[in-house]
């Protein structure tokens, strides 16, 4: 594998977006890019990552390779990332380490790190990325982050309901309750503020607040978030990158007994 990002912060943002949710991950590299899937220890949150060749300045993968890494270690190396530097990932044919080369041609500087790869045995789950959903919402990731931060302070359970009137996020704590209603809007001046809802039926689902706090850490990937809800599947919270691919979080709901 030889894959070069023209801006090293792209890879840093991707890794930082889920490093607190899961401890280790297998990156599966092939001609069609880098894909990964990891599940948190409680098996409630599933992270999917897709970095297609379009995200790279140059991308080459001669034969399919799996790169297992501890995210805490990789995240430490990526602290060196900045918008002035490129980052090339190299993995040899017999992979036992990942080489990260940061280059800042303007400053005549380069940095080289090696990360020992780990053998991770993890189940791959069959996730249909075109999963049918009853409700799809596209909204500002900034707005979503603020709503989650504000409401999750009040309760460890978080409810999302969508009707034709809009999307309602609500919490009911022991001493306080809160509700945020967001209605579809079109902001011609700033498209990232738009909120659109497409739905075939109403939904009313509950989730554990702590996972939503993990999910919003990915908001730096995109100023938009796509939400997909159905009564009988995990919800999908997806951040898509400008150049294709992105990071998705499947979150299993809480149901009444």
């Amino acid at each position: 594998l030889e894959a070069k990002f023209d801006d090293s912060t792209i890879f840093k943002k991707i890794i930082d977006s889920f490093k607190d949710s899961v401890t280790q991950i297998n990156f599966v590299c092939s001609e069609s890019g880098i894909e990964a899937q990891a599940i948190d220890d409680s098996r409630v949150l599933l992270v999917t990552v897709s970095i297609p060749p379009s995200c790279f300045e140059s991308y080459r993968c001669d034969r399919p390779t799996t790169i297992g890494v501890y995210l805490a270690s990789l995240a430490k190396l990526l602290k060196s990332a900045n918008t002035n530097s490129s980052l090339t990932l190299y993995v040899a044919d017999k992979p036992d380490e990942l080489l990260l080369l940061f280059e800042e041609p303007k400053n005549q500087k380069s940095m080289e790190y090696k990360l020992k790869l780990v053998d991770i045995t993890a189940d791959m789950l069959e996730v249909d990325s075109d999963m049918k959903s009853d409700v799809t919402v596209e909204m500002s990731s900034v707005e979503f982050t603020k709503t989650v931060r504000d409401l999750t302070q009040l309760s460890d359970s978080f409810t999302v309901s969508v009707t034709k009137d809009g999307i309602v996020f609500s919490v009911q704590g022991d001493t306080a309750q809160g509700k945020v209603l967001l209605q579809p809007r079109e902001d011609l001046a700033d498209e990232s503020n738009n909120l659109s809802i497409s739905m075939s039926k109403t939904i009313d689902l509950s989730f554990a607040s702590k996972y939503l706090l993990d999910i919003i850490k990915a908001a730096s990937i995109s100023n938009k978030i796509f939400l997909k809800f159905s009564d009988d599947t995990p919800a999908l919270f997806e951040f898509k990158m400008e150049k294709g691919g992105g990071v998705g979080f499947y979150l299993a709901p809480k149901y009444d007994d």
Binding site: R43, V44, L46, E126, Y250, A252, Y255
Partner: peptide, 14 residues
């Protein structure tokens, strides 16, 4: 009271 489901309740292992 609500029960927390897991991802395994919904997705099959490949």
């Amino acid at each position: 009271e609500k029960t927390q489901f897991t991802i395994d309740d919904f997705f099959e292992i490949m």
